[in-house]
Structures are given as structure tokens and as C-alpha cells.
Amino acid sequence: MEWANIVIQGVLIGGLYAMFAAGLALIFGVMRLVNIAHGDLIVLAAYIALMTTDTLGMNPLLAILIVAPIMAAIGYCLQRALLNRTLGDDLLPPLLVTFGLSVIIQNALLELFTADSRRLSAGAIEVASFPLAPGIWIGVLPLLQFVVAVAVIGALQLLFYRTAFGRAFRATADDQSVSQLMGLDNRHVFALAMALSLTVIAIAGVFIAVRTNFDPAIGPARLIFGFEAVIIGGLGSMWGTLAGGIILGVSQAIGAQINPGWQLLAGHLAFLLILALRPEGLFPKVKG
């Protein structure tokens, strides 16, 4: 029974990891950019949520409605003003610029908020849980977060494959020069993609803020979890990313159960194992 609870917890947090991954994979798909500052942007969203709840006194989960548009705007401007200038054949500029961005965000947050651990309170929902079966309990908040994560991924799939918007993203991802012949302005498309990624990050950031203690330094670990979920799941598949996140979450949960100090290590080892045995991931998208 204990193991069932462990696995369920792992699955639920896997949803969160899948959200980290979705934002990362989206950007890579559309413009071949890996944003090293991805994790730090999640933390930034958490701090924006903190400021929002402090000034407006609202429930953090509702604060998503304010944090998301702010982050989307930041994403659009960031891409247009800075990151569009790094895109090209050379992979060093975007990598190094986003690395620099990561350093800047972390230290700016450190200056503004100090290294103190923070956490947002969502009220009674945090401790509420209900029994799924005899001896198996599910926390309401983790379940809510998982459901939202699945919904977000589903929404992204829908967006990409059933809307004109998504068609524009996919076309630009396929061929940046020919997409211009369709009337698409690459600078604008990329900026929209980044805005979308940061919207997903905003949701993830608020969830983090409520679920764990956060401080300016936890960004890189989130980047790594997102990245591992992408690789485990397989590039080019949103649902694969969900699977990857779940596998990562479950590995960590099992590792933690064996020995608390092994939680992160277990996740990394699962990732390395998949990399060794099936580098294309478990559910890679096969192109027609």
C-alpha cells in the first residue's frame, strides 16, 4: 500500500515536470532554441505570484490570471528585443545569452528578495485529501495540479494541430524561409511562441510557489527536470513529454522512499538509463 501511495505521488508531480518540459519543448520545436533560463523564469513567475498575492491579497491559484499575462508579455518582449538576435546557424549565441540571462535573473531575484525561502499559502486546499481506495490517499492540491497539467498539454496539442495559430508555428518550425512566403513574420511568430512558453511557465511557477519552498537558486533544477522529461518522453511529442514527466516523478519518488538523499539521483539515473538504452526517447514522434 505504501508503494501505491509513493507511485501516485510520483505520477502527480510528474504532471508538474511535464509542464516544465512542455514550455521547453515548444520553443525548441519552433525555433531550435533551448532556453537555459527556463527554470529561472519559472522561479521569476513564482516571485511575481508572491508580489501579486502580497499586494492584492488573493489566493495564489487565482493569481495565475494575473501572472500569466505578465509573463506572456515578458516572453514576447524578451524574444523580440534580445533572443531573436541570437538565432541563426551557430548554437553558441543563444546558449550563452540564455545562460547569461539565467545568471542575471537569479541574482536580480537575490537582490530583490534575498535568499530566504518563501512559500505561498493556498488555504485549506493544501492539506485536503481524499481516499481513492482503502489506504490510498490523494492530496487535492497535487491532483488539481496534475489535472491542470494534463489540460495544459491537451490545450497545447489542440492549439498546435487544430488552429491556424498552431499551423503557423509548425510551418515556421519546418521551414523558416518559406513560411515568410506565406506572409508570416518570423520575428513575430517566434515572439508569440516564447509568449506561449512563458504562459505555461507562469502556471508552473504558481504551482511551485504553493507546493514547495522556493528561493532564487532553485531555477536550474527545474530546467533539468524539464529537460529530462523531454528526453525520456521523446522529442516532438507533447503526450510523450507527459509520460516522460510521470516516469521522472515516479523514479524520484521511489528513490526518495529507498533513501531520502537519493531522490534527485534516482531521477537522474532514470534519465541516463533511457539515454543509454533508447536515446530517441520512449515515444518519439515519427514524421510521415
Binding site: 491556424a164 499551423r167 503557423a168 509548425r170 510551418a171 518550425a173 519546418d174 521551414d175 524561409s177 518559406v178 513560411s179 515568410q180 512566403l181 506565406m182 506572409g183 508570416l184 513574420d185 518570423n186 514524421k287 510521415g288
Partner: peptide
């Protein structure tokens, strides 16, 4: 290029250059 299309000039590029992850209809729609 993206403004020239808006003015009414369309190019069928050499080598077709269809969007590989789009279906036939999606290529037309875009």
C-alpha cells in the same frame, strides 16, 4: 518577403518546399 505576399505577389519556390509536418490541406490553408 512577408509583406510582399500581402501586396499580392506569391512565389512557388524552386523544389516545391512544402511544409513537411503539415498535411496537403494544411499546406493549402497556410
Amino acid at each position: 518577403a512577408h509583406t510582399v505576399v500581402a501586396r499580392g505577389i506569391a512565389l512557388v519556390p524552386e523544389g516545391r518546399r512544402l511544409f513537411s509536418s503539415l498535411s496537403v490541406e494544411e499546406n493549402l490553408l497556410i
